[in-house]
Nucleic acid binder design. Structure first.
Lengths: 208, 208
DNA sequence: TAGATTGTTAATCGATTAACAATC
DNA sequence: TAGATTGTTAATCGATTAACAATC
């Protein structure tokens, strides 16, 4: 009903709106949000519309009300818990970044095969051994898994996550994973992103 | 002429093909590559076609020839150099990951505002102070910048990169940046990706 | 009110998929 | 050869953009 791109944009709008709210901005127009995000005003309006919130021609959108509407649309009512598998450089970066950022979506546990890391608290999150996956997932009600292990381990880790009933997976390993139909999976391919940028950097000013 | 999605897929194909080549696989069909990547066979064929390489109905595609064709299509003839700005957790993850992976696209320098990091070699790459940006960029012929600084610093860093004539930017800071027309810029929004996964994880099995 | 902005539909755009004659 | 696969065009699909009456 709503595309994943729309969700991603709403997530972005919310982040920017929260900054505006912190600076006591009360309301704004679609074209202002469009300018901040690089989208068109029409798209901003359509995205906002899909959350069920309405602005007025006179004031545009109320910042706090709009944030609340996006919250209600994106966040699961009772919140969601995520687990991160693979506490390497990238894993630590994500743990540090998401720590206490969004109460309705928290990374509550991490996992690593390195015994040196197990039972330590890294960036505020306890690291467990993979054998405890099911127990920890059930204890915390984890529904989302974040894969930050090397490519060679990723398919096995994904299978383990499927088995314990995870509902969504964000995969940072540079190998595309496939998920059963009841699991939503997104592959984030940073390698491909860098090569794409390099390609256009080499082609400019020809390319678009 | 060729979309950025096509470039990203070609980058992925190449990575998988290199693995196959290492395992002495000589040739493969479009549907095999399609299965590995989760794409359709028609799309694989079209992507390969755009590199100018042709297979044969009998053998499909020669693995090594196809790699060479993708190389010739994506890589700049004389290679390209990248610089990474912000040697935090994420920066180190990227440095470690891209080290000596692709001779035609190397991260040759890093930058950080933390004096403790300056002049140290981190994951094989020397860290410089931002004041030396222009000198280092020119010395190494850097055309691509990777931004891994906090959101608050990102716009300023981007401006500095524009000023020294960088051609492409990969931005990991969770704030959308805008580039002048002669610079290709890609925003990688990991926050939005996680929230998107969480959204569908909460909606499943309704959502697509 | 006057006029800029909204919600929303219709038109456009571009990418993906299906299809099939040509091929080895 | 026979037949599966290729290159490539046409059809489909979905998302973005343009447009405008309704609105405050």
């Amino acid at each position: 009903m709503v595309s994943e791109k729309t969700i991603a944009r709403l997530s972005l709008y919310r982040r920017l709106l929260e900054e505006l709210a912190a600076q006591d901005t009360d309301s704004l127009y679609s074209h202002q949000l469009a300018k901040m995000t690089g989208k068109t005003a029409a798209q901003v309006r359509r995205d906002i519309m899909s959350t069920g919130y309405s602005g007025t021609p006179q004031r545009g959108y109320d910042v706090r009300d709009l944030i609340a509407s996006i919250d209600g649309f994106i966040d699961a009512p009772d919140g969601q818990a995520a687990a991160l598998i693979g506490v390497g450089n990238l894993g630590r970066a994500l743990l540090a970044y998401f720590t206490s950022r969004r109460p309705k979506l928290r990374i509550v546990a991490s996992f690593d095969s390195d015994e040196q890391k197990v039972d330590r608290v890294i960036h505020g999150v306890r690291c467990h051994q993979m054998d405890d996956l099911l127990d920890v997932i059930e204890e915390h009600g984890v529904t989302v898994g974040i894969i930050t292990v090397p490519a060679s381990d990723a398919p096995k880790v994904a299978d383990q996550l499927f088995k314990v009933g995870i509902r969504g997976i964000l995969n940072f390993a540079p190998v595309p994973l496939k998920a059963p139909p009841h699991v939503y999976l997104e592959n984030v391919d940073m390698t491909a992103s860098l090569e794409t940028v390099a390609y256009y950097a080499g082609k400019k000013p020809r390319g678009r």
